[in-house]
Amino acid sequence: MERRNVIKSLGIGLLGLGQLPSWANNWNSDSFEHLEFENSNMFSKIVDCLIPETNTPGAKSVGAHQYVEKVIKDCYSEQIQSEVNQTLESLSKDAMAKHQKSFEKLDNLQAVDILKNNTSNKKTVEFLKNLTIRSYTSSEFYLTNHKNYQMAPAYFHGCVEI
């Protein structure tokens, strides 16, 4: 599901809870709606090639690129942000040099190959990979389909057979 739709439906859900006090107004649907994603295409390609669409949704269709970009922008230091930007530039250069195409135009196999072989930014590539995994494994698709996630299980068994 698109991230903004999730947030939208959340907004409706919250209204359904009753009137919330004014201090709780930060929790509404607007924040993602008006967000500008500067490197949207780059991040789309990165998450898509890392966890591609197969017969099940991949990272792009669960909106992982939007989480990745937002988390980097809001939660990490300028140092890390600049390392990410530098890595994005380096990936673009590698793409041009090898395929004469911009990174976001590569097919997934080509893109993954560029990522894997960018040894000069190994640490940042790992960081992007981990953040992509974190976003994907936090998605509604992954949690409900794979983890059998229940928000309110209402039980606990301390010892069951696998």
Partner: peptide, 14 residues
Amino acid sequence: PTTMMQPWEFEHLG
């Protein structure tokens, strides 16, 4: 305000 939010509804993954 957050009590019924699912993990994927947090913009910064919590």
